[in-house]
Design a binder for these strands. Structure first.
Lengths: 215, 215
DNA sequence: TCGGTAAGCTGACGGCATGACAGGACAAGT
DNA sequence: ACTTGTCCTGTCATGCCGTCAGCTTACCGA
């Protein structure tokens, strides 16, 4: 699929080169967690990786280029979120279970990758198609599965005709992503993590099935 | 409440000074709409405003400081979003109306201020308390009203006891904000603006009342 | 009308990040 | 040891940052 890893000037990266490259990515990733995106400088990343700025520019065109790389790796993992919905039922107690596990898995994934996801979110919101594509890659799997589930329930007549499955699914996924990204915010509103999850699951269940879950 | 407007070095700003200051804010605001936050440079803002970088630093400590100023002005307007909920009913047809108007007003506000809201969102997500506070100021009005409505319905026994009003309200508000910030994303999923609104309103209504709206 | 005072603005400067290059260090095969 | 191709860095021109001293402008009281 992907060709070999190449440097900016076209050479093929060998073992050592790839190691350096990865180390730079790791350090950048770490910096994104500890300081504002706007203030991340190439020279700091290079220093942290025990190398020089020039080396950084050998592997990446700029900071944004490296961020895209990290985001891509994450998106590949994120595609696994589909499993949270594959072959699950939305009926009865199983439905409630499905909603809960979806929320759980989603929040966990976001928590693990919050720094990079923030940047991806910003890039996408600013209209950058590359970030946009990555955001889609992560959300699409969940979104499509949800959308299909809703459409199926709709075809069985359990949901009103004028409901748009894609709109509902997209809104729910956006909600999950937003809440995950601002989990700290809820503490200020006096809501604890443990309380948040079941309430989110409730909203997801309501949105998908149009009914309260049977617990 | 606020004293006079002051320059960084403590002088009081007069008519001309305030005009310059405002012009810088306007230009910065415009730049945020047209280029990535990370790439907004003081020198560009100054040039656009027909002045020099040194002048910029006379009125603001740095770019972030100026952004906070803009965000503050916006937050003041945003507090008006409370009106969308004040004294509204969540019962019957009126409830559906309330949900629709909330969604409408929210999306409109976000659309008008999308550039600055993106930056505020990022700052808040990165843990900056100043941005966080501003984000709260905007969302709190809506959030509190929603939370109260849910708590009231709950006290009448129309909603399960184990529902946490603040968690539901916060999640719904986060959803509205997220969807508003990624409106373009839905087009890729084949969802048009006009279709999006009623579906969002449906989710809000479901979340607040636990029931499908009567239209 | 005329200083005096404070506001308003800018040129210039040291400092630092950026991004490009050429050349030296290094590993592996012969 | 020699060659080849990968890998890293010293160095440099460029441009932005953030500050300061000093100049210009506006206001005000005598």
């Amino acid at each position: 699929m992907t060709g070999q890893v190449r440097t900016v000037d076209g050479r093929v990266a060998g073992r050592r080169g790839q190691a350096t490259r990865q180390k730079l990515l790791d350090c950048l990733s770490e910096m994104l967690s500890s300081s504002p995106y706007r203030d991340v400088k190439v020279i700091d990343v290079a220093r942290k990786a025990g190398t020089s700025p020039a080396t950084f520019y050998q592997y990446f065109p700029d900071v944004e280029g490296a961020v895209l790389e990290i985001a891509d790796q994450m998106a590949a993992e994120g595609a696994g979120l589909t499993e949270l919905l594959e072959g699950r039922s939305w009926v009865g107690k199983a439905g409630w279970q499905t909603a809960q596990e979806l929320v759980d898995g989603f929040l966990e994934f976001w928590r693990k990758n919050d720094a990079i996801l923030r940047v991806v979110d910003l890039g996408a919101a600013e209209g950058d198609k590359r970030f946009y594509k990555i955001r889609m890659k992560i959300l699409n799997s969940v979104n499509n599965s949800l959308s299909d589930s809703i459409a199926e329930l709709q075809s069985k007549g359990r949901i009103d005709k004028d409901v748009n499955p894609a709109a509902i699914a997209g809104s729910l996924v956006a909600m999950l992503a937003a809440v995950a990204g601002h989990q700290k915010g809820f503490q200020t509103w006096g809501v604890k993590q443990a309380e948040l999850k079941p309430n989110l699951a409730l909203l997801v269940h309501l949105g998908v099935t149009g009914k309260k879950p049977t617990k």
